[in-house]
Design a protein around this nucleic acid. Sequence first.
DNA 1: TTGCATCCTGTACCCCGGTACAGGCTTACC
DNA 2: GGTAAGCCTGTACCGGGGTACAGGATGCAA
Lengths: 148, 148
Amino acid sequence: MTGAWLRTGEVAEAAGVNAQTLRYYHRRGLLREPRRSNGGHRLYPPETVTALRVIKAAQRLGFTLDEVADLVEAGGHRHGRPDRGLQARAVAKLTEVEQKIADLQTIRETLLQAVDAGCDDLMACAASSCCPLPFAELTEGGRRADVD
Amino acid sequence: MTGAWLRTGEVAEAAGVNAQTLRYYHRRGLLREPRRSNGGHRLYPPETVTALRVIKAAQRLGFTLDEVADLVEAGGHRHGRPDRGLQARAVAKLTEVEQKIADLQTIRETLLQAVDAGCDDLMACAASSCCPLPFAELTEGGRRADVD
DNA sequence: TTGCATCCTGTACCCCGGTACAGGCTTACC
DNA sequence: GGTAAGCCTGTACCGGGGTACAGGATGCAA
């Protein structure tokens, strides 16, 4: 089973990422360093392409690269750990995503109101209070802004 | 009318921002440079606090600082320009926000499916295709990812 | 006048997810 | 064995929105 090793560029192209990104993921601990040729060139097993697709999928689901690194790690040595990573983390991420959707919907409402009100100069509106824009600090009265 | 000038720290505190942020906004063209004391200290009119609140409100609505700078500028010399900035831009931003909501809802669905399916190791799932996660490139078949 | 808080400028740094470049070595093919 | 494409390393840079720090000048009150 020595016929299928892939070089950096081949892996990158197959997974649809930049070759530099591979090195970056090694640095970030998302990919293990593969074996090397005598001359020092990396030689990847074909599964690496799958690993990259997994990483990209997780990113699309809103996980940061640090979180992805955790997930991969958790998947790796999940040999009887009580952790059971993926489920719990997916649920947590789901909550985050739902919060973000709610936030954006608030923003949407506000924009709609602003358009309806037809105001045309922010400073003038702020002065005359004709405008429904939330000039007061939302971040103190409502939910915290430092969360996202 | 010379009793109400505010110093940098006073403005910053009244508006709930860091004093350094004021300098940053000057650099970005979001605030005009105010008058100075003999010694070179900035002396702001009280409206500056309102201006800062407006900027923060616009940010909360999803405008970037560059966009806010445009909006402020447009509001300022809107003396017969055909531009009529705020309305058009608010509508455009509304579209963006709605797109983001739609994207997040797709992500939400996918996460829900992943949780339902109960898979626990990304790599294993990717290999066995038991898992409903979109490991293939969504970004090519579906909507473009370079938009946001 | 002295002392301390505040302010000034310029510059560097932070996070995040990469991307680019320089200068040199390896591999693959003819 | 020559040559071009590809790969190696280290380092610097991008954008977005700030924050921090150094070293010096001012402002204000006692």
